[in-house]
Structures are given as C-alpha cells and as structure tokens.
C-alpha cells in the first residue's frame, strides 16, 4: 500500500529525509515516532504530494506519488495536526464539499455521514459556523471528512492534539476498525502510548533516517532495553545521537591528503 524507496529530501544543506526505505502493507497500522524536527512531517508531505523528493520514489496503492498524483489522492486521506477548514462554512457544508470533491454521490454521502457524524458526536455542531468551534471539534470534523470516502490509506499527523479522552478513544476505535477492514493507517505521533496500544509496527525516525522498524517487541530487542516503548525509543534515539556524534568527530580527525 505504501512503499518508499531510498527517499531523500534536502532543504539546502539540511537533509530532512535521509534514504528512507519502507513498506507498509494493506490494513496495517503503522506508527512513526521521532523527536522534533526528525523528518516525520517532511516524509508525510512527500507522501501527500505537497513536495517533491530530492531523490527516491514513493508509491501508494501501486501508484507513483509524483507521476500519478490524482490516482494517489483518490485513495488517500490526510489529516494534519492543525487542519485547514473553511471557517465560514458549517461542518455539514464542509463534509458535503469534501464528499463531492471525492466524487461521492448523494447516497454515498448520506450513508457515510449518517454513520460517522453520530459516532464523533458532531450532530449539535452541524449547523454552526466552523470558526466558532473548539480545536477538538474542528479536529473531529477534519477526521470525519477524511474518512467519508473510505480511503485505502489514511495518513495522520498528530491527530489527537486537542481531543478530549472520550473522543481520543472514538478516533482510536474507528481507526482500528477501519484498519481491520483493510485501510492502511500511517500515523505520526509523539504520544508513545498511542503507538504502543494501536500500531502493528512502529518506525522511529531520527535526523531524517529511519533508525528502527518493527513491532513493539522487535524494537525492544533492537534497543536492548526492556519494559515500555518509551525506554526503547529513548535508547534507540540516544544510540543514533551517539553514532552521529562519533561519525562527526571522526570526520573532524580525518587527515587532509594532498596529492602533489
């Protein structure tokens, strides 16, 4: 479903994504963890075709993100941490708009909204302008709008920000259900507990590199630590930081060779 091959993205001197290769299968729940500015959001931006990679390829559902962006977007849904919504529209109007953009007919829109709106407790807000809604409610509107067209791949960047515990649970349940039905979930988060609870596999990105991938137990083994995911995460990122420092120190000590 998602296939990244030797993906590189440079911003001037900075290598934001450094040779990432990864495959996420159909119906898999994949969580990406990493410190701030690790390269998670840049990877997501490439997957959603917002930016082009410097080199390497990204495929979603077998389609090249750069070559066949429309085919990709028809099968994809994306919710960022602060999603864009049209402030003067009501949630109902916005949901209809996104449904129609995804070429859903009236019957499909009705079926989908009747299933999702009560589940996310959006009924009391359907006729209010979006500008007056709280951040959590806006987030729920964005998630419902993304799920309406039954995407094959769902990419989320910190989706739980601003959600109360009840609605966090709702989002988790819906994502798990859809994942079991075959939807691939690619979730970027700092909340290790969510990744630990939900993900089939977890990837850790640090300094633009995918330093570890695997199930919770596999990560524990790779890190050499035991217990919670937090310990594995801290151990793996610390190892990577030491590796980068040593590499840089070695580079500094390299003798200059002059060929006469």
């Amino acid at each position: 479903m998602i296939e990244l091959k030797n993906l590189v993205k440079r911003f001037g001197d900075l290598v934001a994504v450094n040779d990432i290769s990864l495959t996420v299968g159909r119906g898999e729940f994949f969580a990406v963890l990493g410190p701030n500015a690790a390269g998670k959001t840049t990877t997501i931006k490439i997957l959603t075709a917002l930016i082009k990679p410097t080199s390497g390829t990204a495929h979603i559902c077998g389609f090249d993100v750069q070559q066949q962006p429309l085919e990709v977007r028809r099968r994809l849904a994306y919710v960022p941490d602060f999603p864009f919504l049209y402030d003067k529209l009501t949630p109902w109007e916005f949901l209809r708009f996104t449904g129609q953009i995804f070429r859903m007919d009236e019957e499909a829109i009705q079926r989908s909204t009747r299933e999702l709106i009560p589940r996310f407790n959006l009924e009391p807000y359907l006729r209010q302008p979006i500008e007056g809604l709280s951040h959590g409610t806006r987030q729920r509107v964005a998630i419902v709008s993304a799920l309406m067209h039954a995407p094959e791949v769902f990419i989320l960047d910190e989706p739980m920000v601003g959600l109360d515990p009840h609605h966090t649970r709702v989002v988790k349940d819906v994502l798990k259900e859809r994942s079991l039905q075959g939807m691939t979930v690619f979730l970027s988060t700092h909340q290790l507990s969510i990744a630990e609870e939900m993900a089939d596999r977890i990837g850790i990105i640090h300094h633009g590199r995918l330093i570890a991938v695997g199930t919770r137990d596999e990560l524990r083994r790779q890190s050499g630590s035991d217990g919670a995911l937090e310990k594995s995460f801290l151990a793996l990122t610390a190892q990577e930081a030491n590796f980068v420092e040593e590499k840089s120190a070695l580079k500094d000590r390299e003798p200059e060779i002059t060929i006469a």
Partner: peptide, 20 residues
C-alpha cells in the same frame, strides 16, 4: 463506490470551489 450516472451530476471541483 457509486454509479457513473450519479457521479456525473456532481459539480466539477472548480465549480465546487466557486460555490463554497
């Protein structure tokens, strides 16, 4: 997901954007 006859009635993205 939906029949061609039904989706044919859906406005184009440009018209949808204009409308909203």
């Amino acid at each position: 997901m939906s029949s061609t006859a039904h989706t044919a009635n859906i406005p184009t993205p440009f018209r949808l954007l204009l409308r909203i």
